[in-house]
Computed example of a mutant assay.
Amino acid sequence: MELRIMSPQEDGFVKEIQWNNEELKQEITATMQEYKSLAFTEDNIKDAKADRAKLNKLRTAFENERKQIKKQCMEPYTKFEKQVKEIVALIDEPIALIDSQIKEVDDQKKAQKQKNIEELFGSLGFQNFVTLDKIFDPKWLNASMTMSKIEEQMKSQMFQIGHELETIRKLPDFAFEAKELYKKTLDMNQAIQEGQRLAEIQKRKLAYEAEQKAKVEEQKRQEELRQKEAAQRAAEQESQGTIAEAPEMEEKPPVEPEHQKADPIMSIDFRAWGTREQLMNLRQYMIDNHIRFGKVE
């Protein structure tokens, strides 16, 4: 079975489309130079429109000729292309059938290998939180990957998981939470970062609680101070009230000495401040010296 091209042969193809392009190029270039130097005004705008129409007509003639030549050149190729695609379609049909059968055989092999991999995984004694899907490598299903190589990689992963677990257990804080995340992801870096994140939150929480406790204690101290000052003021006011009310306790006026009978009796209102002892001494002094005193209304 051989594809043979009878016509055209390699030297039979059109190598070049020959036409008077150089001659036309020189003539048109010279003509176009004349248009570049023209300056149209309102008086000769009609001529400008006529020249534009003539140039467009010339341009259209060249474009039409180009498209016609292209069509002529493409006609044999278009026919040839269609014929080749018909033959290729005939070839593609058995190729597709063979591909489907090859794929079916490959799928069966992969299914059997998948089963072998599952059995191997179950026999190695992985940590109870490790499932096959967490460590599975799609390359294991390739025909070039032997079961012995897969076993080697599995054991390596199992030992690595044990080592990473030990590293996580040594975290100073939140090792349990980090380990729980590791069991889900088998990502040691992510687990350690989670432990560090929780430790930072705990640190900020303790600092906040200490700050709040200090505020509460300061408020309590201030309140106790205010209560102490209020009690002291109340005691002072009570002492002053006792002294002020003391004159009402007298039963009869004191007897004036004989030598003072000629002196007129005078009165003066005042308020005294002092300790309880001082105020009581003042009261006794007035009694001893026969000075009448009473409550100021």
Rank of each mutant, 00 (worst) to 15 (best):
E10N: 10
D11A: 08
G12H: 04
G12C: 03
F13L: 09
W19N: 07
N21G: 11
N21Y: 12
E22P: 03
K25P: 01
I28H: 05
T29M: 06
T29Y: 10
A30S: 13
A30L: 12
Q33K: 07
Y35N: 07
K36S: 06
K36P: 01
K36E: 12
F40K: 00
D43V: 14
I45Q: 11
K46V: 09
D51V: 05
R52M: 10
K54G: 01
L55C: 02
N56W: 05
K57S: 10
K57M: 05
L58D: 04
T60I: 09
F62C: 11
E63F: 08
N64M: 02
E65T: 13
R66G: 08
K70E: 15
M74V: 02
T78N: 14
F80H: 08
Q83G: 04
V84I: 15
I87S: 04
V88W: 03
L90Q: 12
I91H: 03
D92Y: 05
P94V: 01
I95F: 07
L97S: 14
D106R: 13
D107S: 11
Q108S: 13
Q112I: 06
K113G: 00
K113W: 00
K115C: 07
E118H: 05
G122R: 04
G125W: 01
V130D: 01
L141S: 00
N142W: 02
T146N: 06
T146L: 11
Q157P: 02
M158S: 01
F159Q: 14
F159G: 08
Q160Y: 03
G162T: 07
G162R: 15
G162I: 11
H163E: 14
E164I: 00
E166T: 07
E166D: 12
E166V: 04
I168H: 00
R169A: 09
L171C: 06
D173Q: 15
D173C: 08
A175H: 03
K179F: 02
K179S: 07
E180V: 04
Y182R: 01
Y182M: 02
K184S: 09
T185A: 04
T185Y: 03
N189S: 10
A191P: 01
I192Y: 02
I192F: 02
E194A: 07
G195W: 00
R197K: 15
I201G: 00
Q202L: 01
K203E: 06
K205E: 13
K205T: 09
K205D: 10
L206C: 04
K213S: 04
E217V: 10
E218M: 10
E218K: 15
Q219I: 09
R221H: 10
K228R: 12
K228G: 04
A231G: 06
E236H: 12
Q237H: 06
E238D: 12
Q240G: 11
T242W: 15
T242E: 15
T242L: 15
I243V: 14
A246Q: 06
P247I: 00
P247Q: 00
E250I: 09
P254N: 02
E258K: 07
H259P: 04
H259Q: 10
H259I: 13
D263C: 06
M266E: 14
S267M: 03
S267R: 06
F270G: 06
R271E: 14
A272P: 03
G274S: 00
T275V: 02
M280I: 13
R283T: 05
Y285K: 13
M286D: 01
H290V: 09
R292G: 08
R292A: 07
R292T: 12
G294L: 03
K295F: 11
K295C: 04
E297A: 14
